[in-house]
Every structure is written in structure tokens, then in C-alpha cells.
Computed example of a mutant assay.
Amino acid sequence: MKYDSEKRRDDHPRAPSQSEWDAMTPEEQARVYASLPGEVTDAELALPEGDRHFLPKVRAFDTLTGHFERERRRIYLACELPVYYPAERRFAPDLLAVVDAEPGERDKWVVSAEGRGLDLVLEVHVGGDRKKDAERNVARYARLGIPEYFIYDGGKRTLYGYRLTGSRTRKYVPIKPVQGRLPSKRLGLALQVEDGRLRFYENDVQLLESAEFIGELQKVNEKLRRSVRSKSRSLKKEAQLREEAQQRLAEETRLREEAQRQLAEETRRREETQRELKQLQAEFARLKNHRG
């Protein structure tokens, strides 16, 4: 079967329908996959909206990537990656997630080739056409069967979440906040806007971005260094006190031995004096008897 991957509807390339894909040989599928562009055109992208649009999605990607790597959990995350659903106009969401998917590098996500669609999409809205994210994408992502969709409004610093009501439904319902946070069943996390920034939580514990995580590690490392230095000083002080105690003990031992020697000498002299006295007494008695 021949398929022209460059044919366009609304001036955007599309992947073949699922029936067309299934009718292809593996070699034909590989050729079609390779022919699908891995980049989007300027016409498909929204106008640049500065750091308020760029930073939230990059920080979200950084936070989630670091968290799931530390948890050793398989998940594919990407920003502005071209996504091809069968026979659908391609799109490139600000952030996408596919749970239990190999996290290797990709130029595009072709649903027919991967065997599955997206699990979650996050769009960041700052200015421009709000209906694109808040209305048209809500209807479109639900129709495509994407289980969860979140919108972070960077201008208003607000967060909206939607979830499919079932595996066969194609209609979103708003996600209800739980303790002020929107839970994501697919990620096993909760999202919240805090101090004007989009944050993620696991069991009420805020996930840290890489810079924050490194900062905390540096604090722990510095605390450990201070503890080691303090312990080293303490050990040196203990060694000094131990050495001084040993010196005092040696001096006391020397003095005690000297006293014992003096006592032994005095005892010897006393015994010598007593012997001499006895000898004189015996001599005196002998002379007295001799005169009598």
C-alpha cells in the first residue's frame, strides 16, 4: 500500500489512519514513520511568550524527570514533541507524559508505531488565544482519548485539570481539588500553584527542581562538613586531654615510686640503727658482767 506522508490537510502532515497503518508491511511502516517530520512549523507554534511560558514547562519537565529517575519508574516525558495520532492533525504540547514507556530520545511520537497514545498533557497559557487551550484542546484531547489534561495559566497563576470519566468515554470532567491540589492518577502526584509557580507533590511532600535538589544536597554536605570539622576538633581535644592525663598519671607514678624508694631507704636505715643499738646494748651488758 502506498501512503503519501507529505499529503496535507490544513497544511499540516498527518499520520495514516489506523486501518491504513495496519495494512502496511513492517518495511512500509518504517518508511512512513521515517517520513513523518520530527519538527513543527512556525505556523503551528504559538507566538513566543517569554519566560512566563518557557520556564513553567521546563521546570515541570525537570522536576518530573528527576523524581521518576530517583524512583526508578519508567515514564516518557517530552516538551513540544510532535505527536501523530492516526489520521489526525499533528500537535506538539508543552509537556506530555506516557507512563511505563521507555524514556529514550525521540523525534516524534507516532501512536500507531508506539502502540499507545499519551497519558497526560500539560499546556502552559500566558497570553494570546485562550480558547485554544481552555476550549478547543479540551474537546480535542478528550476525543483523542488522552486520560488527563492540565492547563497552567501563567498569567492568572491558576491551574485547571480534566480527566476522562472512563476508558471508553471521550468527554472530560474537571478534576476536583483535594486539599487545594489537583491529583493526577497517571503520575501518582498532585499539582498546585504555590507562590505563583506550578509545583508537584507526592504524599504532601513537594518535589524539588534540580537546582533546588542540588541546593539541598549542598546544605546537607556543608552540614556534614561542619559536623566532621567539629568532630575532628573534638577528637583532637580529647586526644590532648588524654595525653595530658597520661602525663599526669606518669608523673604520679614516678612520685609514688620515688616515695616508695624513700620509704624503703628509711626502713633500711631504721633497721640498721636498731641492729647497731642492739649490738651496743649487748656489748654494754657484756662489759657490765665482766666488771662484776
Rank of each mutant, 00 (worst) to 15 (best):
R197C: 04
R170G: 07
G154D: 10
Q179I: 00
R197Y: 11
S184W: 06
G161R: 12
K171M: 05
R157I: 08
K176L: 13
R157V: 07
V193Q: 09
R186W: 05
G180V: 07
R170S: 05
Y162F: 12
R181T: 06
L187R: 04
R186S: 13
T165R: 14
G180P: 11
P174S: 08
S184H: 08
R168G: 05
Q192I: 04
G180R: 12
I175V: 13
K176E: 14
V193Y: 05
T165S: 13
Y160G: 11
Y160A: 15
L182P: 01
P183I: 05
G161E: 03
Q192N: 13
R168C: 04
S184E: 04
K185M: 02
K171H: 09
L182Q: 08
R170I: 08
L187F: 04
Y152R: 04
L198H: 12
P183C: 09
L164C: 05
I175A: 01
Y160V: 12
Y172D: 03
K156Q: 08
I175T: 01
R168A: 11
K185I: 02
E194V: 08
Y172G: 01
I175G: 00
L189R: 00
Y172H: 03
A190I: 01
G196T: 04
E194W: 02
D195W: 02
K171S: 10
G180T: 11
K156F: 01
K185C: 00
A190D: 09
G161F: 08
S184Q: 06
L159A: 13
Y152S: 06
Q179M: 00
R157Y: 02
G166E: 07
G154N: 14
R186Y: 02
Q192K: 15
Y152H: 09
G180L: 05
K185V: 10
L198Y: 11
K176Y: 02
G180C: 06
K185W: 01
G154Y: 13
L189G: 00
G154L: 11
P177H: 12
T165Q: 14
R170W: 08
P177T: 13
S167D: 15
V193L: 04
E194Q: 10
T158Q: 14
K156D: 07
Y162C: 01
R157S: 13
D195I: 05
R157W: 04
S184C: 06
Y160Q: 15
K176A: 14
G154E: 11
L187I: 06
R163D: 03
L159Y: 11
G161Q: 07
T165V: 14
E194R: 08
P174R: 09
R170V: 06
L191D: 08
Y160H: 15
Y152W: 06
D195V: 05
R199P: 03
P183N: 07
Y172V: 03
Q192E: 15
Y152N: 06
L164E: 10
R157A: 13
L198A: 09
L187Y: 02
R168Q: 14
Y152Q: 05
G166I: 03
L198E: 09
P177D: 09
L191I: 14
R181E: 05
Q179K: 01
Y172M: 02
R157P: 01
R197E: 14
A190T: 10
R197V: 10
Q179W: 00
D153K: 01
V178D: 13
K176R: 15
R186N: 08
E194A: 06
Y152V: 02
T169E: 12
A190M: 08
P183M: 09
L189F: 00
T158W: 03
